[in-house]
Amino acid sequence: MSFSPLAAVKTESFEPPNPQEFYQRFFGHGDWSFTRPMVLFLVVGVVVCTFLVMTTRKAAIVPSKGQWLTEQVYAPIRNGIAQDIIGTKEFLKYVPLLFAVFCTLLLSNLMSVIPFFQFPPTGRVAFPIALTLFVYVIYQAIAFKRKGVVGYLKSLIPPGLPMWIRPMILVLEIITYFITRPVTLALRLFGNMFAGHMLLLLFITGGEFMLLHQDGFQYKIFGIGSFLMAVLMTLFEILIEFLQAYIFTLLAATYIADSIATEH
C-alpha cells in the first residue's frame, strides 16, 4: 500500500467542519430561530448569577469558600483593571459592568471545552456584539456627557499636530473611536473563539475520520496524533479563553478611561 492518502480514500470523503455548522437551531426559522448558542448563553447567565449571588449573599469579613473564589475573580477586575486604568476616583461606578463582562465572557468562552456543552456562545458573533454594544454605548455616552460634542471631537486630536494634517487625523480618529474600536473589540473575541472551536472540531472530526473510516496503519497513527493534538489544543484553548475574556474587559476599561480623561 502506498503512502499516498489518496490511495486509501474510501468512497466516503472527509468533510472538514464549516461555518454552517455553527448555526444550530432548536425551533423557529432563520433569523428568528431559537438556537443552541442561545441556550448555552442562558445557561451562562443563570450559572453566573446564581453562583455570584449565592457566594456573596452573606458576604463576610472572613469569606466562605465560595465567597473566597468569587473574590479571587473580583479583586483582579476591581483593582487590577478598573482601579488601575480608570483611576481611584471614579472606578467603582464601572466595576459592575467590567465584572459582569468578565464573568460572562469567561464562562461563555469556557463553554467551548466544558463537556456536554462544548460550544462557545462567543463563537457566534451576535454575543460578542451584544456585549460590545453595552460597552460602546456606555463609553460614548460618558464622553458626550462629559465633554460635549465639540469637546469630544477636539479631544480626539492630539495637541501639537501641524494644522494642515488635523482634518485628516480627525477623520481617522473618528473612524477609530466610533467604528474600528467596537468592531475590533467584538471581532477579536469572536474570531478567537470561532477559530479555536473550528480548530478543535477539525482535529477531532479529522482524527475520528482517520481512525474509523480509513484503512491503513498510518491513518490510525495519524488519527491518534490528531486526537492528541486536539487535547493539546484544548489546553491551549483554555488559555486563550481566559486571555480573551481578560483582554475584552481590559479594553472596555481603557475605552471608558479614555472617555473620562479630560485632557488627552
Partner: peptide, 26 residues
Amino acid sequence: KYAQSGGLFGTFLASSSDWKTERPGM
C-alpha cells in the same frame, strides 16, 4: 491590600500594576 491577595490569576495578572506608564493606559 485587596490586590496583593493575588487572586486566582495572581501570576497572570501580576504585571498589571507594572503597566501603569504615563497615563493608566498600558
